[in-house]
Nucleic acid binder design. Structure first.
Lengths: 106, 106
DNA sequence: GCAATATTTCGATGTTTCTCGAAATAGCAG
DNA sequence: CTGCTATTTCGAGAAACATCGAAATATTGC
């Protein structure tokens, strides 16, 4: 994963409203949630919600699929897994870097 | 972990300059890096660097310790591990949520 | 105390973000 | 095509952010 992509995904999750939104989608499972359902759960104006949805979609963390007149939003589990992998790997959450000689350049 | 804390940590990592900074610290291992060393590695003005350091420190992802006239910065591996845990757990990167009935509220 | 180095704080500027209501679009039912 | 619901786009205002140079602070050594 490229650093720029990871940063944009982290940034998109780094807003309390969007993190709540994303979490609601994840908890909704593979079935996802319509935008209206999200609006009810989060209790925010539709335009604000749409704005945040777009950010998550642009970052590649959420997908949308039209179902009639409603739009179903789903969390992209693969994208999250990649992001977590990047953090754990590039950023060595396990602390293994200290013993890894090749991990010393910028 | 509280959602607000996770969001603030994600936001602090969600900037390319800060992500590079954090990555440099992680790769430096437990010994950390002085601010001056970071400045050389990243090639940015000292005031800008100091600003970004502060953000990471405020978010709890980086610690500082004075060593004579230089300040050593270190990545807080525990904080990153907690954050990754939050993402993997609350946000179900493994996709297990779909089969988890209790994971259905907001 | 004075000079020298390392780092932060201050102040300013331009860019981006967040929020919301109003208006516009998309799809469906009749 | 009309009306209806779901959702997005537009426009605007306030707040936050990123960046940088200049000035201030901290620590050491003489």
């Amino acid at each position: 994963m490229k650093l720029e992509l990871a940063a944009s995904q982290l940034e998109s999750l780094g807003n309390p409203t969007r993190l709540r939104l994303y979490r609601a989608l994840v908890r909704a499972g593979t079935g996802g949630l319509p935008v209206g359902g999200l609006q009810q759960k989060l209790g925010i104006p539709a335009s604000t919600l749409s704005h945040h949805c777009r950010k998550l979609i642009d970052a590649g963390l959420v997908t949308q699929e039209r179902n009639g007149t409603t739009l179903i939003c789903r969390a992209d589990y693969g994208a999250m897994a990649s992001l977590i992998g990047y953090l754990a790997d590039e950023c060595c959450a396990d602390g293994a870097c200290a013993e890894n000689p090749e991990n010393t350049e910028a």
